[in-house]
Design a protein around this nucleic acid. Sequence first.
DNA 1: AAATTTATCAACCGCGACCGA
DNA 2: ATCGGTCGCGGTTGATAAATT
Length: 232
Amino acid sequence: MANYQAAMQGEKMRKGTWIEEEDERLISFVTLMGERRWDSLARESGLQRSGKSCRLRWLNYLRPNLKHGHMSIEEERIILQLHELWGNKWSRIAQRLPGRTDNKIKNYWRTHLRKKEQAENFHYRLGNGQQDLFFQKGDRSALKYNCGNKGSVEEFSSNSTNDTFDVVGLSDLGLTSSPYETRLISDWMSELSNDQSEIKRHEGCKSLDPTTWIPDDSINIWDHSSSLWKID
DNA sequence: AAATTTATCAACCGCGACCGA
DNA sequence: ATCGGTCGCGGTTGATAAATT
């Protein structure tokens, strides 16, 4: 049983961060053997890695035409929209974002966008140059997210020094934050309102509807003609 | 300047689906 | 029908960078 053997060799298997030499070796062998049969590829390459680890490293980091930079506003919008539509179907969402892996999207959503989704539990209103903010019944989790985990909302001090907007609802609940925490909320609120206007600007852009958008076949992300590496 | 906390993201893990023998 | 091998997905962890006190 190969799995058993692999398990028995487990102690010899390397884990954790890949080093450059491993990457180079993996790239060579994927180029030779193709993107399949990862267990045998791992064995034949001599890498002390599981096939699974090799596959993951290749798909999430080494394969050509991956985008490694920051997510654009447009990509963020698509992720939010599709997540709302499909839930945590990361691989499915990734299909709509060429160059982005499911893992990347999942991480991005967890670290950046979940906060905004939580924010939808807030009642948020703009008016007379003032912003009122208060919780929906029983939900304080969003504030905690945006103020870090270091303290519960109950620990906040009672006087806000922030005059850019009045946290009326928080005051009402005795939940006004410390200056640092208030600044965080303020930054976050302005970020949120920027995003909303950004989203509005794109609303008329029919071709970018992620639910109907189909990758352009003329752009082949597997085109190796401009190979990123040389094989000796 | 040092200690502590928080954010980020690559990598791991478990599980289920699929396929061929 | 079932068994082993493989693949892919989604949740979670852990290392480390960045921010804050």
